[in-house]
Design a protein around this nucleic acid. Structure first.
Length: 502
RNA sequence: GCCCCUCUAGCUCAAUGGUAGAGCAGUGGACUUUUAAUCCAUUGGUUCAGGGUUCGAGCCCCUGGGGGGGCACCA
């Protein structure tokens, strides 16, 4: 009877799904395919708005369009139904009248639930309040939504559900869509900037015998046939420089790297890194490249070079200030901070400022600690921090003016490191010594430190030209430009613990 | 790994230790120009799980789980 036919017996999620499934079954029984294979549309919602931008209220055109989208809202006043359908973030109203559609077509409209995908053909019109609409004469269900969407007005608020069910988040939360629109525009812009400069985009292995190129703990996995442990990469650096040795000249990679560390609003175990290497360039060229990459990405994604940080506008137009790490640290400490002071003196400086240090730390690590504690968090507008101590920069070339520092920089914005680059060390003998220092530190118990990469050294022995290299945290760049403060808002599917039941 | 906060209907949220509610969604009804349509009626709950205290627990306590924030580590 009535209850069976409409599936209205009971309530709750299970009953709602059953009711909607019953609509699918009924359509099949009537000879309609509820999940058709394809649908031809002539216009997207955005196209319609662009093509008929300012029709007077109450206009009826004879312009035919065919559109498709997801039903987001439905206003049913009996013999007339207004449907608001969403099509890639743009909305369009369908004006569905019984007079125009007849019994069958109107029944199809009546049966539509919020969340259903629908295709419709009709003429462009405006209602008497001026809303651009399509007066439909044909409506087709393209896919039934069996599961009800989250609240049409409040959206999805629970962060857990937003991340686990990103599909639902994207349907109902415009802010979520916007952050990823920014992301996609940023990534496209980065590629464009590189392509315009003659770089080749490359892809290098994710599975490494030894993860190297950054101070980080790797994920360990296992290959059955080779019967060996493999490590997921923590950086792409050494492979790209092998390509420079091979004469590829200008290369970049945008790829996922994996670091087996804690999660936070700024850290996801897998994240996207951009690295680039350019033969015959040094750190100054790389800083200029970085400025262009970021300014272009901002312009391409936002249409402006101004971003908002903590409620204040910040202009990203280059050039940005270049300040040596030792000078920034010295200014903040009110006394000289430089690795030449030696470990003992630097420990004293650290203690004077309440900075905790460890016995194993080198002079360079102490300098870095002073910088991180006293300076890093206070940088808001972009600053290129240069001249990192040699002992914390095992792959960077020694500064031509100061043997204790390197030709390196890190870009800081909003208290966060966004990029890191340097004049690449290309002397295989010196690189071996630096690797050996890393290995010693690792053997002494610092799991993040590196090992001696013999194959990389072999490559360097063939000769690597002078090279400038860059690494950019793409997720953090997107966070800055999208104006969000958690990395989970710019990673579609952030790492979560397994879900427990439903 | 440690500390703090949080978890109630499909969604968004209420509920001095005393009968678990509302809005949206859903269902039934009215309505041919609505805009979160409106109006009338109405279904829907293992209050994250398991223990405990109490005459009585969504609320207090313990254990466990998910999530958020902080610390640590890092980009």
């Amino acid at each position: 009877m009535e209850d069976e036919a409409t599936g209205s017996a009971g309530s709750g999620l299970a009953a709602e799904r059953a009711r909607r499934q019953a609509v699918v079954d009924a359509r099949r029984a009537e000879g309609h395919e509820p999940y058709p294979y394809r649908f031809d549309r002539t216009h997207t919602a955005a196209d319609v708005h662009a093509a008929w931008p300012d029709l007077e209220p109450g206009t009826e055109t004879s312009d035919k369009v065919t559109v498709a989208g997801r039903v987001r809202r439905k206003r049913d006043s009996g013999k007339l139904v207004f449907l608001t359908v969403a099509d890639r973030g743009h909305e369009l109203q369908l004006f569905a009248s019984h007079a125009e559609l007849g019994d069958d077509g109107f029944q199809t409209v009546k049966e539509l639930d919020l969340g259903d995908w629908v295709g419709a053909a009709g003429t462009v019109m405006t209602t008497r309040t001026g809303e651009l609409s399509v007066k439909v004469d044909r409506v087709e269900l393209l896919a039934k939504s069996i599961r009800p969407l989250p609240d049409k007005w409040h959206g999805l608020q629970d962060p857990d559900t937003r991340f686990r069910q990103r599909y639902a988040d994207l349907v109902v939360n415009a802010e979520a869509r916007r952050a990823f629109d920014v992301r996609h525009a940023v990534v496209a812009s980065l590629r464009t900037t590189f392509h315009e400069r003659g770089y080749a985009e490359v892809e290098t292995p994710v599975l490494h015998e030894q993860a190297s190129g950054a101070h980080a703990r790797p994920f360990v996995t296992y290959h059955n046939t080779l019967d060996m442990e493999l490590h997921l990469r923590v950086a792409v650096e050494l492979h790209l420089k092998r390509l420079i040795v091979g004469g590829m000249d200008r290369v970049f990679e945008i790829g996922r790297v994996f670091r087996n560390e804690g999660l936070s609003p700024r850290h996801n175990p897998e994240f996207t890194i951009l690295e680039s290497y350019e033969a015959f360039a040094d750190v100054r060229d790389v800083m200029a490249l970085t400025e262009d990459l970021v300014a272009n990405a901002c312009r391409d994604a936002l249409g402006t070079t101004t971003v908002t940080i903590g409620g204040e506008p910040v202009d990203l137009v280059p050039p940005w200030p270049r300040r040596r790490m030792v000078d920034l640290a010295s200014d903040a400490a009110g006394e000289e901070v430089h690795p030449s002071l030696g470990v003992d003196a630097l420990r004293t400086v650290a203690e004077r400022h309440g900075i905790r240090w460890e016995a194993a730390w080198s002079a360079g690590q102490l300098v870095e600690a002073v910088f991180e504690e006293l300076v890093e968090g206070s940088i808001v507008a972009p600053v290129l921090v240069t001249g990192h101590p040699t002992d914390i920069s095992p792959l960077a070339r020694v500064d031509r003016d100061d043997p204790l520092l390197t030709e390196r920089f890190e870009l800081f914005v909003d208290g966060r490191e966004l990029a890191n680059g340097y004049s690449e060390l290309n002397d295989p003998v010196e690189q071996r010594l630096r690797f050996e220092d890393e290995q010693r530190a690792k053997d002494a118990g610092d799991a993040d430190r590196g090992t001696v990469d013999e194959d990389y050294l072999r490559a360097l022995e063939y000769g690597m030209p002078p090279t400038g290299g860059l690494g950019v945290g793409v997720d953090r760049l997107v966070m800055l430009l999208a104006g969000v403060d958690t990395i989970r808002d710019v990673i579609l599917f952030p790492t979560l613990r397994p879900e427990v039941g439903e």
